[in-house]
Amino acid sequence: MDAIQLSSLDNVAVLVRRLPAGARVSLESGEVILDRDLGLGHKIACKPIAIGDKIMKYGVSIGSATQPIAPGQHVHLHNMQSDYLPTYTLDVDRLFRGVSTP
């Protein structure tokens, strides 16, 4: 088992171990191929998701899609957002690149 779908209502599954791009992941809805390296705890789509669709995890909405998302694609800040509050992130790589290579 590489990913778990926490509720039958969900359109995302959670990776239970670190996996490289190209890895084949078996889901109840069929096999998908990862589009990037992903860490434990990250989400992938297990169904096709359209812009504006609710992202469902634990059987409830955790936000809305801002991009169309295909099964197997990473679901995160680049293609979904909160319906409540913006998410603040610190891009450490970019901060360090900004210092060392102007």
């Binding site: 705890g41 989400k43 992202i55 634990y58 909405s61 955790i62 936000g63 909160s82 998410t87 603040y88």
Partner: peptide, 23 residues
């Protein structure tokens, strides 16, 4: 203008406040 959400939460795969909340 800021929820109870730290950068490390996103690095660890959490995307939104409501997702963190459900957990």
């Amino acid at each position: 203008g800021h929820g109870s959400f730290a950068p490390g939460n996103a690095d660890g795969g959490l995307t939104t406040q409501e997702e963190k909340s459900m957990g």
